[in-house]
């Protein structure tokens, strides 16, 4: 399970209330994920957290049949999702039709609560 740091806590706090957020630079308007202390595009330290639309497309994916640990139930789908804002994140594709995922498919965020402290931003295939 994620162990948030001071830098990443806002991301996980927002997930708990059903909002997918990302760092955005107030100077160059660039998006930064995973969280870091300054802008990757212009090196400005003026990053703020903004909510995203939570929609995007699958850049690539893999169906995992050999689970990382017994905590995971195979098969599960790991994907790189490019959000419509233009940044990428790794996540799981969930839902009854996840096994049919393909490169280029449209997806939208679906929050999966796994504990009191942690809600994971997964994605599902968009209709």
């Amino acid at each position: 399970m994620p162990r948030p740091s001071a830098l990443t806590r806002p991301f996980w706090d927002a997930c708990r209330v059903g909002r997918l957020t990302v760092q955005r630079c107030t100077r160059c308007q660039g998006y930064v994920f995973v969280p870091q202390e300054f802008c990757r595009h212009c090196r400005s330290t003026t990053l703020t957290w903004v909510e995203t639309a939570g929609t995007g497309r699958i850049v690539t994916y893999t169906v995992v049949w050999r689970p990382q640990t017994p905590a995971f139930t195979a098969p599960y789908v790991v994907a790189v999702v490019e959000l419509d804002e233009g940044y990428q994140m790794i996540s799981n594709i969930v839902g009854s039709d996840a096994a049919g995922a393909a490169v280029g498919d449209r997806v939208r965020v679906r929050f999966v609560r796994v504990s009191e402290a942690v809600t994971l931003p997964c994605f599902e295939l968009a209709a």
Binding site: M1, P2, R3, P4, S5, T8, V34, V64, R66, P67, Q68, F72, Y76, V78, M89, I90, S91, N92, V118, L120
Partner: peptide
């Protein structure tokens, strides 16, 4: 933190 929770491992 942004890897382990998705069940990623090397393969």
């Amino acid at each position: 933190e942004f890897i382990e929770c998705w069940g990623l491992m090397t393969p």
